[in-house]
Design a binder for these strands. Sequence first.
DNA 1: ATGCCCGGGTAACCCGGA
Length: 255
Amino acid sequence: MKLATWNVNSLAVRLPQLLDWLAAQQPDALVLQETKLTDDKFPHAALAEAGWHSAWFGQKTYNGVALLARAEPADVVRNIPGFADEQARVIAGTVAGVRVVGAYFPNGQAPGSDKFAYKMGWLQALEDWLRAELAAHPQLVLMGDYNIAPEDRDVFDPVAWAGQIHCTDEERAHFRALLDLGLHDAFRMFEQPPKSWSWWDYRNLAFRKNQGLRIDHILVSEALRSRVAACSIDKQPRRNERPSDHAPVLVELRA
DNA sequence: ATGCCCGGGTAACCCGGA
């Protein structure tokens, strides 16, 4: 079983690349972030034409998430139950017996800002919900754009980024709190090339210079841990002519 | 360096992203 996450930075712009990527990779499920589409604009017909079921949850201009799968996702949930939120950031569904949670974590902008406080509250709500969700669905994957670089080795210049957004102690403590729920970082279960990133700034020729961050993650539950066969970042779409600034991350589970 | 590049919404000396 192949699962993946991709922040497409506007599905309206990236739909052709998404269809190409789906055809090439054939994942069983893919979660998208930053679709930036209201629900009436979601391209479900084009995806259905290519053989993909979709569940989606969007808003105008910002955020927006979706879950695509070969089989129809069951028990779809939008956003964090019990957490009032104007922003469309979470979609969950069950695909082939696996609870797939796709999330676009808040950016946080800068430590001390209102947006940082919102990020902290959102992370706490996510953890509280996931504790229950894991109890109900032991086979669970949490994947998406976390906007957190968990360790210094996930940052191209950890000295310059020390204490900056995505790298603060508070954000990293929340990432560890997710691990403490019994989740495992699939990417770090394997030997990986040094300087592996999932995001590169559009500016400064950052991709060409490989200056990036690893902020897109796939965490798997304890019950799925032994099934994880591989996890990788697919840099190929970042080489496209008009790319997203994020690359997809994939995980393969044994049957 | 409050800069660089993007997408979106709108007409801005714009915002948000990361």
